[in-house]
Amino acid sequence: MVSVGILLFPGFQMLSLSTSTVFEFANLEVEQPFYRVDLVSEEGGPVKSSMGFAIDTVPFGPYDTVLVVGDNEVLDATPGLLSYLQHAVVKSRRVTSACTGSFHLAAAGLLEGRKATTHWYHARAFRQAYPTVRLEEDRIFTVDGPLWTSAGMTACLDLALALVENDLGAEVSREVARKLVIYHRRAGGQSQFSALLDIDPKSDRVQTALVYARQHLQEELSVERLADVAHLSPRQFSRLFRSETGHTPAKAIERLRIEAARLMLESGDHPIDIIARDTGFGDPERMRRAFLRAFGQPPQMMRRALQLQA
Rank of each mutant, 00 (worst) to 15 (best):
E171S: 13
H216M: 00
V90R: 15
P131E: 01
G44F: 00
V181K: 07
P234M: 03
T142Q: 13
V47H: 03
L28Q: 12
F237I: 02
R239H: 10
E136R: 10
T96C: 12
Q236D: 12
L75C: 02
D198F: 02
F60A: 06
D144A: 02
F60G: 07
L110E: 05
R225W: 10
G45K: 08
V37K: 03
T21E: 15
L217S: 11
G109P: 10
S50I: 06
A187K: 11
K179E: 00
E175M: 12
K251Q: 13
G145P: 14
D38H: 04
G11A: 08
R262D: 10
F9N: 03
A160W: 00
L81F: 02
E165V: 00
R185S: 10
G52M: 10
L263T: 05
A252R: 12
D273G: 01
A170I: 00
W120A: 05
L111W: 08
Q297M: 09
T78S: 15
L67D: 06
S97E: 04
Q128L: 03
E24Q: 00
L39S: 01
R293E: 13
N72D: 14
L217Q: 09
F23P: 12
F241I: 11
T245R: 11
A250W: 01
L157Y: 07
Y84C: 13
P79K: 07
V223Q: 15
A77Q: 11
D64W: 06
S3V: 05
L217N: 06
K202N: 01
L306D: 06
G113K: 14
A290N: 11
R174E: 11
V143C: 13
L217E: 09
M302L: 14
L240V: 14
S173L: 14
H87Q: 13
A54N: 07
R293K: 15
Q128W: 01
A170L: 01
A125V: 06
T245Q: 08
L263C: 02
A294M: 07
I274V: 12
D71C: 09
G80K: 06
F141T: 02
R255S: 08
R277P: 05
S173G: 15
L157R: 10
R239G: 00
L105F: 01
V143Y: 04
T279N: 02
R225Y: 09
V211Y: 08
Y63N: 08
R289Q: 08
S194I: 04
R36L: 13
T65R: 15
S3Y: 04
L17E: 01
S18C: 09
D76E: 14
L217F: 03
Q128A: 00
L82K: 10
K48N: 01
L210C: 06
P131W: 02
